[in-house]
Structures are given as C-alpha cells and as structure tokens.
C-alpha cells in the first residue's frame, strides 16, 4: 500500500487494537496484519516508535510482566487515549464516507 496513506492511520489502528485490552508490541503487529488480511505490510520495528510516542502523549499506559523468562511490556488504553481514539474514528468515518461518496458516485454513474 501507499505508505503516505498509512502514515496518518497507524496511531489510530494501534489505539484500536490496544482498546481491546492490554497487549504488547508483537501481538499488536500480528493483530493489525490479521485484521487487515495482510494489507498493512509494515516493518514490525516501525511500530515501536509509534507506541512510545502514544505513551509519551499519555494516550497509552504501560506495565511490565515476565513471560517465559523474558520481560514483556504491555500497553493499555488510557481515558485520554479512548477519547482520542473516538475522535480519530469519527474523523476517519467522516473522511471515508466523503471519499466513498465521491468514489461511489463515480462508480455508479455509468450504470444510471
């Protein structure tokens, strides 16, 4: 996909995944890949700068746990993150409806 289209939506996708419950980086990348059916073919490492930025913005909180002898960092959505996610989703819906409206009208026009 065009990475310029993805750039503004990665944070919204992360917040949406984290909103399902506490999770960690590898699981977030796997979830995004499965739900998009491989559409978002991102470098898994590029996910972490976004995670840390959301954490610094207080949209995510984190905690550590030990799994199979390794330390693992879990993220969960904060109240502020939930608000931000709602706003992003509303904006995305409006945007996509607008885009779809234009694209749908154009597609339907030949059949009229």
């Amino acid at each position: 996909m065009d990475s310029r289209l993805l750039w503004g939506t990665v944070e919204m996708l992360i917040l949406e995944v984290v909103a399902q419950g506490p999770t960690y980086g590898y699981e977030i990348s796997q979830t995004v890949g499965e739900r998009s059916r491989g559409y978002f073919d991102l470098k898994e490492g590029s996910l972490y700068p976004a995670l840390h930025r959301l954490e610094q913005q207080k949209l995510l909180t984190s905690f550590w746990d030990e799994v199979e002898g390794r330390r693992r960092k879990y993220y969960k959505l904060s109240v502020k993150g939930q608000t931000a996610l709602d706003a992003k989703k509303a904006a995305w819906k409006a945007f996509s409806q607008g885009v779809n409206g234009v694209l749908g009208a154009h597609v339907l026009a030949p059949g009229l």
Partner: peptide, 14 residues
C-alpha cells in the same frame, strides 16, 4: 534495559 527487553521480546516471539 527497557528498550532492549521490549525489542528482544518481539524478536523472540517472531
């Protein structure tokens, strides 16, 4: 250490 542990956990899972 936090950075190392977080990335190492991801690499181990992958």
């Amino acid at each position: 250490q936090d950075i190392a542990d977080e990335l190492a956990d991801h690499l181990a899972c992958a």
